[in-house]
Amino acid sequence: MLTLSSPDFTEIELVTGYQVTCNSCIETIFIPRKSLNAPKDVTEGLSRSGWQKAVNDNEYFVCVCPKCVKELQENELEGAE
């Protein structure tokens, strides 16, 4: 017989960090906070993994995931043709 009860609190881990959401497709990434220099480390890590800030003639995206960066670049090339 199956018996259900509340989860064991000792198995729950508290993790602090930064959650970043793409302003185009709402993909989310969580980056655990590991160092005192975290804001700089986080932005550099995001850039290395392809996340960028994007601005064009009529849109401004504070943070865009790699998939959407590629789409924005393709749209820019199509618009230039």
Rank of each mutant, 00 (worst) to 15 (best):
M1H: 10
L2M: 05
L2H: 13
L2S: 09
T3D: 15
L4H: 13
S5W: 09
S5G: 14
S5P: 00
P7D: 12
D8A: 09
F9S: 11
F9R: 12
T10M: 09
T10A: 07
E11L: 13
E11N: 08
I12H: 07
I12C: 11
T16E: 15
Q19V: 09
Q19S: 13
Q19R: 11
Q19N: 07
Q19F: 02
V20Y: 02
S24Y: 05
S24K: 13
C25A: 00
I26D: 12
I26T: 10
I26G: 04
I26W: 05
I29T: 13
F30H: 07
I31R: 03
P32Q: 11
P32N: 07
R33I: 10
K34T: 14
K34A: 12
N37K: 09
N37E: 08
N37T: 12
V42Y: 08
E44A: 11
G45A: 04
G45S: 03
S47K: 13
S47C: 10
R48K: 12
W51K: 04
W51S: 02
A54T: 07
N56V: 04
D57A: 15
D57K: 14
N58L: 11
N58Q: 09
E59W: 02
F61S: 01
V62Q: 11
V62L: 04
C63M: 06
P66Q: 01
K67W: 08
C68A: 00
K70S: 14
E71C: 05
Q73K: 06
N75R: 11
N75C: 07
E78F: 02
E81S: 13
